[in-house]
Amino acid sequence: MTELAINFPFALQGAPAPQVQGIDLSWYLALSAVLFTIGVVGVIIKRNVISMFMCIELMLNAVNLTFVAFASYFRDVTGQLFVFIVMTVAAAEAAVGLGIIIAIFRNRESLDVDDANILKL
């Protein structure tokens, strides 16, 4: 992480990036890495489908944070556009995912993934 915290000149397009004193890029990246890890661990240890799905959303938001942090650091719009696309896709995924979850709940009345064992893993 020390390598990330280098300070390089901020003379891209006019004004320098508005930064909170003492909080540089590496803090944001560390936070998003922690969030992503929490999401991954959650997907692995949670047994309820809805909780697993929420952990996946957490992973996607960690990615969004990374994009926004870089975009604001570079004063570049690319990362922010990417975040819009990720959010749209996540919404579409949520719609389909909840539909699938409802279909399985109607047939089985349980959302515990350990019950999903007709097909052996």
């Binding site: 697993m52 699938i100 399985i104 993934v113 097909l119």
Partner: peptide, 9 residues
């Protein structure tokens, strides 16, 4: 159902 749930997650 199960197949699609597993694929989705």
């Amino acid at each position: 159902n199960e197949s699609s749930l597993k694929y989705f997650i």
